[in-house]
């Protein structure tokens, strides 16, 4: 977590833009929350979902952050999506749902509550980043 699923029309967002959106979302999320970068997952889904707009950012985050931060985060994510893809504002919307951190394990560790990330967790983030690089990611 966080897990951001971008519902998009089929073949509407080429790879270069998907990669750029993923990087931008990582920058936005980590800039807003201080979370480690390897925490941030972004997936694009061309399934024919019935969202209220053709493009939809469906985020799942750890619970426990202030409402104002969540609202700003979603706004910044949508802005980043639009900036990269050029999609008009009226065609993009989104939501962020939340679940308890303790329900998920990542890298063999139970996720910490927001704001309670330890030095060990950031070392773990660095290790994952190195693994991704070694795997060609």
């Amino acid at each position: 977590m966080p897990f951001y699923r971008c519902a998009v029309p089929k073949e509407s967002v080429p790879y270069e833009q998907r990669a750029a959106v993923a990087k931008a979302f990582t920058d936005v999320h980590c800039g807003s929350t201080g979370a480690p970068r390897s925490f941030v997952h972004v997936v694009f889904d061309e399934a024919d979902d019935r969202w209220e707009t053709p493009y939809f950012v469906d985020g799942a985050n750890r619970a426990g952050r202030p409402e104002a931060l969540k609202t700003q985060l979603l706004s910044d994510l949508i802005d980043a999506f639009r900036e990269v893809t050029g999609v008009p504002a009226e065609q993009v919307s989104g939501r962020i749902t939340e679940g308890p951190a303790s329900w998920t394990m990542e890298g063999g560790m139970v996720l910490p509550e927001p704001g309670e990330e330890t030095a060990e967790w950031y070392e773990h983030d660095e290790r994952i980043g190195q693994g991704q690089a070694a795997a060609g990611g």
């Binding site: 998907r18 993923a22 990582t26 941030v40 997952h41 694009f44 795997a135 990611g137």
Partner: peptide, 18 residues
């Protein structure tokens, strides 16, 4: 499956399963 080129972690292509 997440198709190749559609999944990212930390801004880079992902190898992660959920």
């Amino acid at each position: 499956d997440i198709p190749a080129g559609f999944g990212f972690r930390g801004g880079a292509p992902s190898t992660t399963s959920l």
